[in-house]
């Protein structure tokens, strides 16, 4: 991590702490519960995500992190509980509702169209257009210009936006998916397993990008089971176990072993026994 970036991260933490004092949470879950038939996937989870922080949700398979993410991104409606955005109660019945409030989600499968180029992928469904009345057509010049802007200025990557996505590496594909989220000008981006199945270099590329976005004031929610990566990136880490939020830790006050124990047992019994 560069000195410049460390300073930016510290500043972000300070801003986040200030925000905690004054501003409402950027995103808040209050007693969120989701049941599928008789199975309780998420059980009475309450948490607050501060403006411009990188918040990670970790948990083992079946811990409920994807279900919680899906409620925050509008894929699932909660069975019980309330979501707040910037202090205001919001109800999402589909991802478009969440998008309308500034929440974008990058799913694990990235939802990219391999045969199409980067710019077309970024603006699919929301192309810049020009024309009059119903006769409005895609403005390709602006599409390419804006796609380049997003990739260059916001993601800091010098790219050929006419490259077909099929020929990008895993990390590069992740960036394009994030670029598409940015095209909607969000203030919260939820990333589902952003570094899973990526090489070391690609993981670093994605981590740098996430830090860059957070430095720009965008609130990032990472859903992951890659604790190592999360420890490097997150300002706070929420641990889910069997549908419940069992702990929220700051990276400075925890380690890989402790988080692993929380994820697999839901408690820190061995630690307290040692003590």
């Amino acid at each position: 991590m560069s000195a410049e970036h460390e300073a930016a991260t510290e500043q972000r933490h300070a801003d986040s702490a200030d925000a905690e004092a004054g501003e409402p949470p950027k995103l808040q879950a209050e007693n969120l519960t989701k049941q599928f038939g008789r199975i309780v996937a998420v059980d009475d989870v309450s948490l607050e995500i501060r403006p411009a922080e990188v918040f990670a949700l970790v948990g083992d398979n079946g811990a409920g992190k994807s279900t919680l993410m899906n409620m925050l991104s509008g894929v699932h409606e909660p069975t019980k509980g309330q979501i707040y955005k910037d202090g205001q109660p919001v109800n999402f019945s589909n991802p478009a509702d969440a998008r309308a409030t500034g929440i974008e989600t990058v799913y694990q499968d990235l939802a990219l169209m391999d045969d199409l180029d980067i710019a077309t992928n970024i603006f699919m469904g929301q192309f810049p257009r020009n024309g009059v009345g119903p006769l409005r057509f895609i403005d390709w010049d602006e599409t390419y210009e804006r796609a380049e802007q997003i990739m260059m200025e916001q993601l800091g990557r010098d790219v050929d936006i006419k490259t077909e996505v099929e020929f990008l590496s895993g990390g590069q594909r992740q960036l394009v998916a994030i670029g598409r989220a940015l095209a909607f000008d969000p203030d919260v981006i939820i990333l589902d397993e952003p570094t899973s199945a990526l090489s070391v270099d690609a993981t670093r590329l994605v981590q740098d990008t996430i830090e860059k976005l957070a430095d720009q004031g965008i609130t990032i929610v990472i859903v992951s089971h890659n604790i190592e990566s999360v420890l490097k990136l997150a300002d706070r880490i929420g641990v889910l176990f069997r549908g419940s939020l069992v702990n929220i830790k700051q990276p400075e006050e925890t380690d890989l072993e402790e988080l692993n124990e929380l994820m697999t047992t839901g408690t820190l019994e061995s630690k307290s026994m040692d003590e």
Binding site: I118, M151, D158, V159, D160, T163, Q172, L175, V176, L205
Partner: peptide, 11 residues
């Protein structure tokens, strides 16, 4: 097909 010198690109 354009040429590219960036990280995401092809030569």
């Amino acid at each position: 097909m354009a040429t590219e010198q960036g990280v995401v690109g092809r030569v």
